[in-house]
């Protein structure tokens, strides 16, 4: 009798592989109506890695992230964050939604947004204090936005907005960062700044996962990839997984062969 059958027989959850990995996903399915956006996806993100989630538009990359964090309901699937259900490991996770998902006309200043990242350390029925402001300023400084602290958020450029979102995530001081399209529509300087911060995080032993759409920078920025097109196509180190065959399968005919050749593939 195989190991699997033994486990099923025992009827208990005993994850053999990477027990307290930052993220273990099994059979995640999320559907809008009766059309699955993400179908039965497995993934396992090792600690201290920097993973790019790539796939064509509408392939369910963001949905995967949101389903993982319970921001949208899932149809089925088992999620473990550091070996625990998400709600027990919430403090160790920082999530950066897509920049376009919020209303930047909201009446708030840059510092107000970063302070939101300190929510967990403020406590119920209490207010943000001077020491929180200091921490928020430090985070803004790390993304090069300290001079903009009192600026109305609607006056920021796209790149600046993204940096503010990253500063908010830094304020959470988490071990595991999940970012949804952090490089979408930002200027080159911002992209460099964000990559530098993410690499710092990795150097500190933290784990980073980004939904990413620019195939030409995957090898430069990340060490692992997760290829998704509704289903998981492949997952693993960039060296072995970011291959022409896998990309072809992920993107289908939408990715011209010449384009693949241009990429610095393994």
């Amino acid at each position: 009798m195989s190991n699997a059958e033994l486990i099923a027989e025992a009827g208990k959850i005993v994850d053999v592989a990477a027990k307290d990995a930052p993220l273990t996903v099994r059979g995640l399915t999320v559907s809008y109506g009766n059309k699955p956006a993400v179908f039965s996806v497995d993934a396992s993100i090792p600690a201290g890695s920097m993973t790019a989630i790539i796939g064509p538009n509408g392939a369910g990359k963001s949905t995967f992230l949101k389903g993982t964090l319970g921001v949208i309901p899932r149809l089925s699937g088992e999620i473990r964050i550091f070996g625990k259900p998400f709600h027990e490991a919430r403090d160790r996770v920082a999530y950066v939604p897509q920049r376009a998902s919020v209303d930047w006309d909201f009446p708030a200043r840059v510092i107000d947004v970063v302070l939101m990242g300190l929510y967990g350390s403020v406590g119920l029925f209490r207010f943000w204090r001077a020491r929180h402001r200091e921490q928020a300023m430090e985070c803004l400084d790390r993304v090069g936005m300290a001079d903009f602290a009192t600026r109305q958020i609607g006056q920021l450029s796209g790149g600046q907005q993204q940096r503010v979102f990253l500063a908010r995530a830094l304020a959470q001081n988490a071990e595991f960062y999940l970012l949804d399209e952090p490089f979408a529509g930002v200027d080159a300087a911002t992209e460099r700044a964000i990559v530098a911060v993410l690499k710092d995080l990795k150097a500190e032993g933290r784990t980073v996962v980004c939904v990413h759409h620019d195939l030409s920078t995957v090898a430069e920025y990340f060490d692992r990839v997760l290829l998704i097109n509704v289903r998981r196509v492949a997952e693993g180190p960039v060296d072995t997984t970011f291959t022409a065959a896998n990309l072809q399968e992920t993107y289908g005919g939408r990715l011209a062969t010449t384009h693949i050749d241009e990429l610095r593939l393994a």
């Binding site: 949101k66 964090l69 319970g70 921001v71 709600h87 919430r90 996770v93 999530y95 939604p97 998902s101 919020v102 209303d103 909201f106 708030a108 107000d112 947004v113 939101m116 929510y119 967990g120 403020v122 207010f127 943000w128 908010r168 959470q172």
Partner: peptide, 17 residues
Amino acid sequence: KELKISTFDAAFAEAIG
């Protein structure tokens, strides 16, 4: 805090609990 955060960014608010 909760009203402000969830009004500005519901997905983030949900993710931080």
